[in-house]
């Protein structure tokens, strides 16, 4: 019983925290409109930002008046490290593209993500097969986009 109560209070606090964050975002947008001279530029975003503040305040009051358990799944059994690694690998991969081009960071990111997402044993067969499949997928997409669909993929300043 007490655990349930603690859970519900904790959840409400997080919703209130998110509402405060939205108010902060709206205030930042409102502040940015103060630099604009043309009313065509600021009328609409200002109205939306004010609406967002009012709605967020209403959400805070609602949660204070009628607290209830919000929906949310447990993070206990899931690997946060793998989650962070996935996002980091993707970000580093695309940040390297202006220097190294699309292909090399693409292949490296693919390999890195393959290791991050691997939950099975690295058997001999997998060690041989997966890199070949990975290379084929990356080269396949690279050819499709770069040569067939004529998308100008970055070459990389290091190779120009």
């Amino acid at each position: 019983m007490s655990n349930n109560l603690q859970g519900s209070l904790q959840r409400d606090t997080s919703t209130i925290f998110m509402a405060c964050l939205f108010i902060f975002v709206a205030v930042v947008f409102l502040w940015d409109t103060t630099h604009m001279l043309d009313s065509d530029s600021y009328v609409f975003p200002r109205a939306v930002a004010i609406a967002m503040i009012i709605l967020s305040l209403t959400l805070i009051v609602w949660n204070l008046v009628k607290p209830r358990l919000a929906k949310g799944e447990s993070l206990v059994e899931a690997s946060t490290a793998r989650r962070v690694a996935l996002v980091a690998a993707m970000l580093v991969g695309c940040l390297a593209m202006p220097w190294l081009g699309f292909l090399i960071p693409g292949i490296l990111t693919f390999f890195l993500l393959m290791f991050i997402a691997m939950y099975d044993q690295w058997t001999k067969k997998r060690k041989l097969l997966y890199p070949v499949i990975a290379g084929a997928i990356v080269l396949g997409f690279y050819t499709l986009f770069g040569n067939i669909l004529q998308v100008p993929l970055p070459v990389g300043t290091l190779f120009e």
Partner: peptide, 21 residues
């Protein structure tokens, strides 16, 4: 999963890039 995740991630990256290069 070890091939699905990187394939989908790579598709999202190259697909998003292709929208406006």
């Amino acid at each position: 999963k070890a091939l699905l995740v990187p394939t989908v991630a790579f598709m999202t990256m190259i697909g998003t890039y292709a929208i406006r290069n």
